[in-house]
């Protein structure tokens, strides 16, 4: 009961506090604060996710996921080679080989959802849904023109994605062809190029999306798993100018020089 109360308090705070922080919002260089648009709420538009969205602190998973029990033998071997700075297999800072934080490699997909889902903008065209992420200042193209995913594509950091409307308020996105140099999360969980990812964006109301992500990668995990289950994401004012948050290679190098190289404990 006490645990439920604590969870309630934290969940409530996640929703409420950004509204207070909105008092500090500026026209430019806005970090992303979950203030809903002003005016009457009204119904959600049909088949339209356009807008700037923010999952708040819920979009950031610093420690990653504890999924060791799901590893296949190959998955376990791949996981051993990854030396993360967080999570259940946390390594000494001198051994950390996170390609994002130590080399400045792209976060890739789906890590951009499973680790650092900072504010992002959705733009829709007749044939595409575009995801414009504040983190890394990256974008993804989700084709909604009915094309199928490629069968044997050259892997990409952000893969290949197609989407369809399951109903007027639910966009389902399938992704494939994902580069296995990327990690899934901050815990160094691996994936293969055979992984398939499903995202479900459900428009709960005008101001709220719920995102569910399911991974299927039989080479690495013994069964599909769902790292994000109905993550609430809130609509931001449409005049929000998001900050840059680009983890560059030169800044990763500076971090190793100034901090990591001196912080090692072994």
């Amino acid at each position: 009961m006490r645990l439920h109360f604590i969870v309630f308090i934290i969940a409530s705070a996640t929703l409420l506090v950004p509204g207070r922080a909105h008092a500090q919002m500026k026209s430019w260089n806005n970090a992303g604060l979950s203030e809903p648009p002003k005016g009457p709420s009204g119904p959600a538009p049909r088949r339209d996710l356009s807008g700037i969205w923010d999952a708040g602190p819920g979009g950031i998973q610093p420690t990653g996921y504890n999924v060791a029990a799901l590893f296949t033998p190959r998955g376990g071997e791949m996981a051993k080679a990854n030396k993360p700075g967080n999570g259940p297999r946390i390594a000494d800072v001198s051994e950390d080989n996170d390609p994002l934080s130590t080399l400045g490699d792209p976060a890739g997909f789906p890590r951009i959802l499973l680790y650092e889902l900072r504010p992002f903008q959705i733009v829709q065209t007749a044939k595409q849904v575009l995801m414009l992420y504040m983190f890394e200042k990256r974008w993804r193209v989700i084709w909604t023109d009915g094309r199928a995913l490629p069968k044997d594509p050259d892997p990409r950091w952000y893969g290949y994605s197609v989407g369809r409307w399951e109903d007027d308020y639910t966009l389902v996105v399938q992704s494939f062809g994902l580069d296995d140099r990327t990690w899934l999360d901050n815990a160094g969980n691996p994936h293969s190029t055979s992984m398939r990812v499903e995202e479900r964006y459900h428009r709960v109301d005008r101001e709220t999306l719920a995102l569910t992500v399911t991974l299927e990668d039989p080479l690495i995990y013994t069964k599909p798993w769902t790292p994000l289950n109905k993550l609430p994401i809130r609509l931001m004012p449409n005049d929000t100018d998001l900050m840059e948050m680009v983890p560059s290679a030169s800044e990763a190098l500076a971090y190793r020089k100034e901090i990591a190289s001196q912080a090692k404990t072994k």
Partner: peptide
């Protein structure tokens, strides 16, 4: 109370990129 709880949450991402093991 809610604000304090949220601040805890917001604090979590600190060192999220590199870990706090050191």
């Amino acid at each position: 109370i809610l604000a304090a709880a949220a601040l805890l949450l917001v604090s979590v991402p600190l060192l999220a990129h590199h870990g706090a093991a050191a």
